[in-house]
Structures are given as C-alpha cells and as structure tokens.
Amino acid sequence: MNLLLSLFGAVAQGLTWTTFALGVFITFRILNIADLTCEGSFALGGSISSVLVVVFDWNPYISLLVSLLAGMAAGTVTGLLHTKLKIPSILSGILTMFGLYSINLKIMGQPNVSLIGKPTMISVIKDMLPSATELGIRDYTLQTSVVFVVSIIFSVATIAFLYWLFGTEIGCCVRATGNNETMVRAQGVNTDMTKIIGLAISNGFIALSGALVTQTQGYADVSMGQGAIVIGLASIVLGEVLFFKAKNFAVKMTAIMCGSMLYRIIISMVLRLGFDTNDMKLFTAVVVAIALSIPNFLDKKRVSVRKEVHK
C-alpha cells in the first residue's frame, strides 16, 4: 500500500513537471537551442504565483496566468539577446537565468515563500470536496488525487494547445527554423521573430510549471529551478525511449508527459532502495548523458554500414 501510494505521488509530481518538460522540448528539440533561461523562468513562475497568493490574496488560478505571461517575457528577453544583440543562444539563456535570480529574490523579498494557511490551487478544490475522513481515505491520498487530476488537465490542455500552435502557419515556420534557418529566410520568414516566439512560448509554459509545482508543494524557493533543465531533458529522453516509434507530434508530446512521470517513478524507487537524496542529481546527470549519447553511436554504426555497402 505504501509503495502504491508513493508511486501515485511520483506520478502526480511528474504531471506537475510535464509543462516544464514540454517547454524544454520546444527549445531543445524544435528550435534546436539548449535554453538555460528555463531554470530562471521556472523559479520566476513560482515566485510570482506564491507572492500573488500570499501577499496580494489573488486567486491561485489567476496567479498561474500571470506566471505564464511573465515566463513569456523572460523568454522574449533571451530571444532579443540572441537575435538582436547576436549573443550565442546558450549564453543568452545563461544571462537571463542569472539576472532572473536577483529578480526572483526581489519579487519574493526573501529566498522562499510558504503558502501554508493560504488557499492554493489544490486546497481551493479540496475545500469543495468532502473531507478525507468522510471519504474514509488518508489525507495524503486525497491531496495527491487532486494534484493528479488538476495537473493532468493542465498537461493535456498544454499538449492540445501546442499541437494546434505548431500546426499553424506561424508554428510551421518556428519548427522549420530549428531545422534550417537559411531555408526559412529564403521563404520570406523573419527567423529572429520565429526564434523569439519559440523561446517565449517555451518559457511561458516553464513558468506555468513553476507556478504549478509551487502551488502543489506549498512553497516557492529561489533556487527551485537549479538543475531543472536536466530533469526536463531526462523526461524528454525517457519519453523518446518509451515511444521510440512516435511520428505524430501529439504522440511525441504525450511521450514526454509519460517520460516526466517515469522519471519521478524511477527516482522514488531509487530512493526507496535506500540511496542518498543528495546523489540523485549525479544519478540523473549520468542517465541523461548516456541517453543523449546513445543515438549518436547508433548513427555512426548506421553510416559505417552504409559505407561498406557502397564498397
């Protein structure tokens, strides 16, 4: 029972991070940019959402929307640094992330903000339901169920929105930009614009995820985004392993959602085996490094086979 509960908890947590992984997917796989802004915009989403709820008593759901817009602004800054000031993309992301650390501290006024005693997006719904004792289940189970339902709605809605967006004329241009900028410009599209759009959308959903995570875990922390890109990459890579035959764009994104859940399941299992929590980052880094390098070796093999055929 305990095992099942912790699995359920891991799945729910994975779902709150799905929009994050999808955001990383947009930059890393579609735009072909490793965008480190995400670590800052994730914490930005958390900071804004927590402060709006704690200090300004806003509805937690409206705070999510503000977080999304703020994340888009952060992505736009990275995009402008990269396209207009010609700073390499990875450095642009690092600069924005670095600056966001101070901004997040300014927003929160302290390194972390607790939502205890305030209505969160989870407690608002829990209040509408009968209590856990009335239902005859543990409070943790009820809490996790609400998190599960709310975040699966957000994840599916995000997938649906992105599927639509990247199928539109503008979305197609963003996809093509990650493929071949020269061609996109030759077809009369401003590639500076498509890159900025991609970065803005990506970081918008990353900030939304930061707000979701903050609302479900009950606090925001200025360093909550630290190393987050690796978790996002792990989710993408795990999803690609799970659905290696996926061609359809919606299926690919669903795969990432599953990858995000699988990542949390693996971590919770490894922790149950008695490993130190502090070792998890190293563990994740090694797994991602291996998973990202495997396709390269497979490609090499394929190329050499082709060469031999030609001989």
Binding site: G167, T168, E169, I170, C172, C173, A176, M183, V184, Q187, G188, V189
Partner: peptide, 13 residues
C-alpha cells in the same frame, strides 16, 4: 512553407 512565400502568415492551419 514555400507556397506562403511573400504572403502574411497567421494562425490559420
């Protein structure tokens, strides 16, 4: 993509 060269691109499919 090529068919829309020189045309405005929007949120149409």
């Amino acid at each position: 993509l090529a068919y829309r060269r020189g045309k405005r691109r929007g949120l149409k499919w």
